[in-house]
Nucleic acid binder design. Structure first.
Lengths: 197, 197
DNA sequence: TATGTTATAAATATAATAATTTATAACATA
DNA sequence: TATGTTATAAATTATTATATTTATAACATA
């Protein structure tokens, strides 16, 4: 029986909450494991029973957010709406979620080393999810004859590539004070129109 | 009569050449005005007769390269080729020039603070040039009935936005080891197709 | 007057050291 | 045995002093 009266999962969850608070209050660079331990009323070393190291704790925060994002998008992807319209909606939501995150936690983004980030399993998993969802939408749109294309995979790649400034963290940060939803809508619709015939 | 036997313009030009060498040999962060002065055989303080400060010297390097880029693109924009085809060619060249620069001088890019960079007059000038050239091409394409659009300005904006990952320095750096010209071609052609009807 | 000099003040970078934080080890207890 | 403790080694970060670099000033000369 644990001495805090909490399960490992509960401790983990609380640790992540506190970490997010600290990062928001101070900054990404300055938050300390000792602060988390203090607030949890356990020793700093005891955190290592729940997380292999500090990086793993930080990754867990990102992972949690990405899971939330995947779910929200999945929910949209499964709506009963004409697929082409849904693709536009999906991209707009994707953009909004990223922007929301950047606005809320700019510290979380600034220091991202994208090259290293892309190798992490939970990021790969997230990107897979996005690809899978969008592929499904594109396939539906092809079946519904709303767009025409030999390779739905290629359509997915082109759509994601041409909208990168609306979902790539760095680019989203650059434009955080602008409303670019109208522009995104136009880009996606023009691309879809390009696949029309 | 100057004591070096060189005009201010000649000193400036030599200073820029030496600065580029030094940046390439060492790095952006490490190059010193003293090194340039030493090689020019003048005192370090004398450089201030030609450049207001160190930042101005660095800006002059960028400015020179951007001018070269603008000229190359201008030359392409004026070719006698069907405009829609020319737009694709123009984007491919733009991408190649940026990539070339990033591959040659990665140090010049890493430290770029984009927000500050975009306020500099010579950057504004460069972006104006790009917009002007592309606008001309789009207008020609509309006249030739190769694309249909009410607002050529809007077409220009959408084309530049959807291809940003092929010319934004940070994104180009991220993909520097990939050949992405086929992908760029597809994006531009799909967008143009989207404006077709 | 434009371009150069030397001297020096102000700002930055570097290096050595101290302090803090992260991570591991050895052990305790429900 | 899972989760906790304290002690401490290893790594990182802050601090401070020193050296270097950038920028300005006062002045020289073609």
């Amino acid at each position: 029986m644990p001495k805090t009266g909490l399960s490992s999962e509960e401790i983990k969850e609380k640790a992540l909450q506190i970490a997010e608070e600290k990062i928001r209050a101070y900054s990404f660079e300055k938050f300390r494991l000792t602060d988390i331990a203090k607030e949890l009323k356990i020793s700093q070393a005891a955190l290592y029973n729940h997380f292999p190291d500090k990086a793993a704790l930080l990754d867990a925060i990102s992972e949690r957010w990405l899971a939330h994002m995947d779910n929200t998008l999945e929910h949209i992807a499964n709506k009963e709406v004409p697929p082409r319209q849904l693709i536009v909606k999906w991209f707009l939501t994707y953009h909004q979620l990223k922007k929301e995150k950047v606005l809320k936690d700019p510290e979380l983004y600034k220091s991202f080393n994208m090259a290293a980030e892309l190798l992490k399993p939970f990021i790969i998993d997230h990107l897979d999810n996005l690809n899978r969802q969008l592929l499904m939408l594109v396939q539906k749109a092809i079946i519904a004859q709303e767009i025409h294309a030999k390779s739905p995979e290629n359509v997915v790649q082109l759509l994601l590539e041409s909208t990168i400034s609306f979902h790539h963290p760095r680019m989203v940060l650059d434009h955080k004070d602008e409303n670019r939803e109208g522009l995104l809508k136009q880009v996606v619709e023009t691309m879809l129109e390009g696949f029309h015939e």
